[in-house]
Design a protein around this nucleic acid. Sequence first.
DNA 1: AATACAATTTAGATTAGACTAAATTTATCG
DNA 2: CGATAAATTTAGTCTAATCTAAATTGTATT
Lengths: 223, 223
Amino acid sequence: MESSLTISIQDYLKHIYELTEGGENASTNALSERLNVKPASVTNMVQKLAAAQPALVEYQKHQGVTLTKEGRKAALEVIRHHRLLEAWLVQTLGYSWDEVHEEAERLEHVISEDFERRMAAAMGHPLRDPHGELIPTADLVMPLEDSTPLSALRPKQKAKIQCVKNADAELLRHLEGLGLLPGAQIVIVDYSSFDHNLTVKSGTKVSVLGLNITGKIFVDYLG
Amino acid sequence: MESSLTISIQDYLKHIYELTEGGENASTNALSERLNVKPASVTNMVQKLAAAQPALVEYQKHQGVTLTKEGRKAALEVIRHHRLLEAWLVQTLGYSWDEVHEEAERLEHVISEDFERRMAAAMGHPLRDPHGELIPTADLVMPLEDSTPLSALRPKQKAKIQCVKNADAELLRHLEGLGLLPGAQIVIVDYSSFDHNLTVKSGTKVSVLGLNITGKIFVDYLG
DNA sequence: AATACAATTTAGATTAGACTAAATTTATCG
DNA sequence: CGATAAATTTAGTCTAATCTAAATTGTATT
């Protein structure tokens, strides 16, 4: 659904960051998909980027891209903007968690550092955005995630939803309808495979099959 | 202080609108100054714009540009965004009136109509922005200005400041220091020429000479 | 009415970021 | 190990928005 004809450097950095979180390199193809740009264009841009900003980005032919420490900070800046914006739009303008993403996606590139500071201060420097995702700190460090994937829980166990990652708007609305927002307490009733069926809360069986699932749920284990 | 390398159509429309408020045409040169782009580039863009969007813009060689009714609406949309944003940033994030302009300038192009509606509703559909400028209505009509230029007042007369137009940040801070914000009650003590000296509030003589004045003050006449 | 100055336009060059098609490299698998 | 498929890169094209320099048009003044 992206539509801007030209992709900002910030977007390249953000997506490279997300693709390299696990330590791998970001491949041309993977970037191409996320940015809605043909692979050849990505190669081109990434080569230029690496030439122009060697302090941010490392590129080797056929090996994909990585970020330097500084590049990672630049990416975290954008992610911080995004998550603070999501939190703030929800708090002050009554956006629901499935609506904010798109808006934040456009605003994240144009707000000033001053704006960022004011939002953070106004909300008391929140640690997570409305989806429960961790917000990089003001000095651009990404806090360590301390939650467990929902799929690690077994029947009868209790947990609190902490974070719903990378979910599309449809899944978010579905989850919201079931009260499965970050903060909700759940009990695993019956668990077969997270990829297909998700059973939470005594008696509530949530079929996620059929939805085009892209999201992952993380929880705080309670016993 | 502008820095975006490429000017959006929205910016062209907005500045054409502002230049044509008095009924005149917007000249290539005038647009060129406001947009920080060379006159030749403006000619070029305006010709393309008029060819691509004849429903918005009318252009004739050596005669400058005007907006059609529809073009004016498109411009008012941007201006509405800008002024609502200014009001909202001041209200919710404690910006001062001299700081908001720049921020709103960048945000106005990327917020959604939904965002616009939410801001307006959250503030109770305000009529004026923090500088006192009228906010175009939701159906994109610019309300009629009912205030008087400060220069029309004579000594001993009382008035309430309603609007400070087109002032740069320096003048705004100066005015703020004197309590001359929109809403302030003033008494004309001594008036020679608004262009050079401005004397308001019993006993306070404000020399505006020496400031690089670009602003105009409008008031409600009180007697 | 002629000239001179300012504003505007034309023409042509430059840059950036995308695209397509073809070539190359890497990876996989019998 | 070699063949094929997939991923990546190269090469060349296109478009959009700017620029500079030169040509033109409009305007004001005498």
